[in-house]
Nucleic acid binder design. Sequence first.
DNA 1: CGGCAAACTGAAAACGTTTTCAAGTAAATC
DNA 2: GATTTACTTGAAAACGTTTTCAGTTTGCCG
Lengths: 294, 294
Amino acid sequence: MLDVIEKLDYRPNAVARGLASKKTTTVGVIVPDVTNMYFSSLARGIDDVATMYKYNIILTNSDADSEKEIKVLNTLLSKQVDGIVFMGNEITDKLREEFKRTKTPIVLAGSVDEQNLKPSVNIDYVAAVQEEVKNLIDRGNKRVAFVCGPLEQAINSKFRLEGYKKALKSAGIPYDDKLVFETDDTYKTGTLLQPALMSVNATAAMVTDDELAAGIMNGMSDAGVKVPDQFEVITSNDTKLTEMVRPKMSSITQPLYDIGAVAMRLLTKLMNNEEVDEKNVLLPYGLMKRESTK
Amino acid sequence: MLDVIEKLDYRPNAVARGLASKKTTTVGVIVPDVTNMYFSSLARGIDDVATMYKYNIILTNSDADSEKEIKVLNTLLSKQVDGIVFMGNEITDKLREEFKRTKTPIVLAGSVDEQNLKPSVNIDYVAAVQEEVKNLIDRGNKRVAFVCGPLEQAINSKFRLEGYKKALKSAGIPYDDKLVFETDDTYKTGTLLQPALMSVNATAAMVTDDELAAGIMNGMSDAGVKVPDQFEVITSNDTKLTEMVRPKMSSITQPLYDIGAVAMRLLTKLMNNEEVDEKNVLLPYGLMKRESTK
DNA sequence: CGGCAAACTGAAAACGTTTTCAAGTAAATC
DNA sequence: GATTTACTTGAAAACGTTTTCAGTTTGCCG
């Protein structure tokens, strides 16, 4: 019998099944750039639990471009994906409209929407940053810089920067916007930041992306500034890059793989019309001291 | 009025179209691990030209596990993908059988099959390694180690190791298998290799993976061995990691993004039944001297 | 103006499954 | 043993498009 099947080389046609059953067992994944370790880690977590639940993922890079995001969202929906996990931190009104327009379940992974329109999986970014910046201040840093990605992204402006401000406030240090550096989250930009950082007399930096932080550290080293003795840096994503550079980078730790995995698990429940108790889950974060801080 | 707009809010059903037209405008991508920068770079190239040609990609991680590869290949085929780009370097006979069984176009990206069964896009690994090892030898290294991933993978055993042997041969140096280290291509393994490397009196290493190489370099530094003065290392993939570690790693340069892009472009031709002149394309490689070599 | 090919049109078939539904059969209840 | 209930079976409908094909119109040429 199996021989016959082998001979006939029969494969069930999932497309026909999809048409008939209105389920494709495929989910869409929208990600700014797989090439960034932060996102590839999430993506890996997503794919693993997706296959665990017999789903496949259609992976698309959006370059965090709002237009591309909308476009790709619609092609995914027209491909009848059963659900979507979205990564990207600038949820524009237009995008939110698109989100509302469909009844296909969508969950955000490692991405915040200030309006909490959709279920999401994150860590408590403000608490984490606040805690790290407090530590920096307690260690004697009077002027700690905040180096982040685009402030249009709520995760930076509404969360991380808030944590930074809170830490400042409870330490009685006035907020100085000369100390916040808005960047594009790339390694190269980081390497160029040393002069600017020095010119404002910063002695430490809270950085929101590992590649960016690596750039800053190397820029410092190349300019003869010793990390952490003369300049401390803390990064945010705890990708494996933190262990690869020297000195190793202290970081907020996030369960990257798990964020993806939990997001996907959450999505399976939604696709299955199961009840979910907590729509916006916060996973525990930690603080990992390595060599870039005193 | 809103009803009308809502009514007009029509999305063509790609699944129905797929059934009727026998084209899904979706291609499968099988990759060992997106989390590895080498593969995520290829994947990015693939996705970009895929969207350029109106395709989407179903991305699956195989962990380079032969069984998973076969399994996932079949689910992709049952999902009626129009084509597949495969990454992974151990093409087993069983996998080859599966490849033969289907008439869906398949191309290999950054992955060699010694039998050249399927179209592929690569660089000339043997020439590249040979050249770099020759340079190492010319610079006075009598004992250069070859540190690679699993030798079951043809890319390592049949290509890179061959290049290594050739370089040795033309320099009149006898091949010593104590100098070849078969590993699992991970950073962590690299960090542990220093004692073994020292014990065989190696003064340089040709490494086949960037993360692995970074591990080796850091292991050396941590043990007080100066790179490149006391130990030179050359790596193979030229991911952005090479620029991030200190010292920066000298590397064979490969157009990673382009390998993916060209592979996908090739696939579009095959899916379109166009003639392709060269089934096994070799893209140009280069040698980038950075700081991990003298 | 006749004849023929080309272009257009609309309805029906096809795509390969799942879902539905009706009819039939077996089991269970009294 | 009759009546209901539950289960089984097989055929038909449905899924939402593209493809096909016959029929009709248009266009062109002699």
